[in-house]
């Protein structure tokens, strides 16, 4: 990754121009050719430096309900419980964290009742209590990495 790649990443994490030839618009800003911008973006996607390119949809606004949940899982049974929890298709992300509440996962469901039902099923399947932390308020964050 060189300076030009960094410039491309730093400048185009948002505000992708919605025009017929957007890569040409990006290229003009950087004073390089359209094909070079596209080649570099393709390379960084293939290489894994970029996770993706495109619209970041706000899934909250598409219908559906989400919640952050946590459990206190005994250390000696952690991997087994992780397998059980991960088998639920409603579990989108799951992280181990260094806290007494050591398993944190995001549940996605069609409705609040389905979400509550999923929590009950996870509690039954694991024998552990699920703490439910649905978001009450989201603060707009314009997070862009500067590299």
């Amino acid at each position: 990754m060189d300076t030009l790649d960094r410039q491309i990443i730093n400048q185009f994490q948002g505000d992708f121009p919605i025009v017929d030839r957007p890569f040409l618009a990006l290229a003009e800003k950087l004073d390089i050719s359209e094909s070079e911008v596209m080649t570099r973006i393709r390379f960084m996607l293939d290489d894994g430096l970029l996770t993706r390119f495109g619209p970041l949809y706000n899934i909250d606004k598409m219908g559906g309900t989400f919640s952050l949940c946590a459990m206190q899982v005994p250390k000696d049974n952690f991997d087994n419980i992780a397998d059980i929890v991960n088998q639920f298709q409603e579990v989108a992300h799951n992280y181990e964290r260094d806290h007494r509440l050591n398993m944190w996962f995001v549940l996605a469901a069609e409705s609040k009742s389905e979400l509550d039902e999923t929590i009950k099923r996870i509690e039954q399947a694991t024998g552990l209590m699920v703490f439910n932390f649905p978001k009450q308020r989201e603060f707009y964050v314009n997070f862009q990495l500067s590299i």
Binding site: Q13, G14, G48, F53, L56, K61
Partner: peptide, 17 residues
């Protein structure tokens, strides 16, 4: 209307350090 937060490149946090 907010259904799209933004359009652009999404860097891989981990790969970028």
């Amino acid at each position: 209307d907010g259904r799209i937060r933004r359009i652009g490149l999404v860097p891989n946090h981990y790969r970028l350090g």
